[in-house]
Design a protein around this nucleic acid. Sequence first.
DNA 1: GCCAACGTTGGC
DNA 2: GCCAACGTTGGC
Length: 153
Amino acid sequence: MHWLMKSEPDECSIDDALAAPNATVPWTGVRNYQARNFMRDAMSIGDGVLFYHSSCAEPGIAGLAEVASASYPDPTQFDRKSKYFDPAAKTDAPRWILVDVHALRRTRLVSIAELREHKALADMAVLRRGNRLSITPVTPAEWRYITTRLLKD
DNA sequence: GCCAACGTTGGC
DNA sequence: GCCAACGTTGGC
């Protein structure tokens, strides 16, 4: 499958991810069950990822990545000093699950405004009104359109 | 900083 | 199990 994953560039931009060891980062901090379930139940190693910058001056697709691990418990839920600490999470019954994401390359920034201009992308989950999901599936047609037309160098 | 959308919480 | 209040997300 293919995915769009939102990251706040102040926390982890595509450049931050590329600079990490093995260009790989654990996708910490997801605290939404639907997004968690995508990582836990639907992702496979090698799945393509559109790395999306959100909550910033220029929201949009900023890079390409891929799912790089099986799912495992998000360690920040057990870390009292983390802002993602969840007192309800138990070590033997973790509540939050993540995958590692391997950044492949930075792309030109394809802004949300530009995405909205393309009829072929009109049904993209991330463009839906009121969408707040930080991880959304991308259909094969959307993936093909974006990677071959919009991100062609 | 505004505000629409929507998930979560908690009283009943 | 309903639902109002509250909190968060995230584009603008």
